[in-house]
């Protein structure tokens, strides 16, 4: 334990939690009002986001400074590892809820709606997947797997490789290699997001595939949407790590900030693979 102060670092009283809570207060009330089309909702959302941005810079900045000033030893490092692992586990469970909904609709509720009993209510509905359900008559084209989504799979898988190269470079103390591979990872993340935005535009404009397109539209957009949101967050995290690398942060033997983000990035990657199989391919 080369750094660390000999006892577990307990931070001194901090304003950040209450700043975070006030951001959440504005965001939650703002969102509830906005969704019900009440005027000040937008303003509250804007204020909430502003406070949130201030919070993220402030809190994470403070942690980065603490880390660089050698306050975190081995035991603190272990805490971060446990914490990040269980956070990612909780994220997996969040996605599991949506994959569970997809499974339930495809395998259970859609076939039920097409069975003999339901012919009384929905005559002529034959079920099958993809479907917008018996009551939504607008036609749509489902998203194919082998165009852009396959390219997206390649992009994300490649980014998993580049971030590993960055990690190896960091461990060998090859700072220029580190920055190069980090930049490549960020670029791949952004490319993925651009493709995803293009795909959404394509879905709405050409395929008549919308969030409101029944079971298929709901699961398609909610799963890819939440994944895309996580990629966005992950990319921002990667950018922050890139700038920290450029500023000389992290040491070959002490760089959990980097590793945590890498773990998160791999998690996003794996979710995409599951998503590619169950949403696009099957």
């Amino acid at each position: 334990m080369s750094h660390g102060t000999g006892h577990y670092y307990v931070p001194s009283p901090s304003k950040w939690p209450i700043v975070g809570s006030s951001a959440l207060l504005f965001l939650a009330f703002g969102a509830a009002l906005t969704m019900n089309k009440v005027e000040p909702g937008y303003w509250m959302l804007a204020i909430g986001f502003a406070i949130l941005t201030y919070l993220l810079f402030g809190w994470f900045g403070e942690v980065a400074r603490e880390s660089e000033s050698g306050k975190f030893g081995e035991q603190e490092d272990k805490s971060f590892r446990w914490g990040m692992s269980w956070f990612i586990f909780s994220e997996i469970m969040f996605f599991a809820a949506f994959f569970g909904a997809l499974y339930y609709m495809r395998q259970l509720s859609v076939p039920w709606l097409a069975d003999m009993e339901h012919q009384l209510i929905w005559p002529g509905y034959t079920g099958g997947w993809p479907t917008a359900g018996p009551g939504i008559t607008e036609t749509f084209t489902p998203m194919g797997a082998w165009g852009l989504p396959a390219i997206n799979t390649m992009l994300l898988l490649t980014s998993g490789v580049t971030i590993t190269y960055a990690h190896w470079a960091l461990k060998k103390n090859d700072r220029s290699g580190l920055k190069k591979w980090m930049l490549a990872t960020v670029a791949l993340g952004i490319a993925f997001l651009c493709c995803q935005i293009y795909e959404y535009g394509h879905a709405y404009a050409d395929l008549n595939l919308k969030l409101t397109t029944g079971a298929y539209g709901s699961t398609f957009f909610m799963l890819t949407g939440f994944h895309g949101f996580h990629v966005t967050v992950g990319t921002i995290m990667l950018i922050v790590i890139y700038f920290r690398c450029a500023a000389g942060h992290f040491k070959p033997e002490h760089h959990f900030g980097f590793e945590g983000v890498a773990w998160y990035w791999h998690f996003v990657d794996v979710v995409w693979l599951v998503l590619f199989i169950f949403v696009y391919l099957l």
């Binding site: 909904a101 609709m105 359900g133 939504i136 029944g214 709901s218």
Partner: peptide, 11 residues
Amino acid sequence: TSFFNAAGGGD
């Protein structure tokens, strides 16, 4: 969305 709406294939 139609997660809990039978008309959209949900339940």
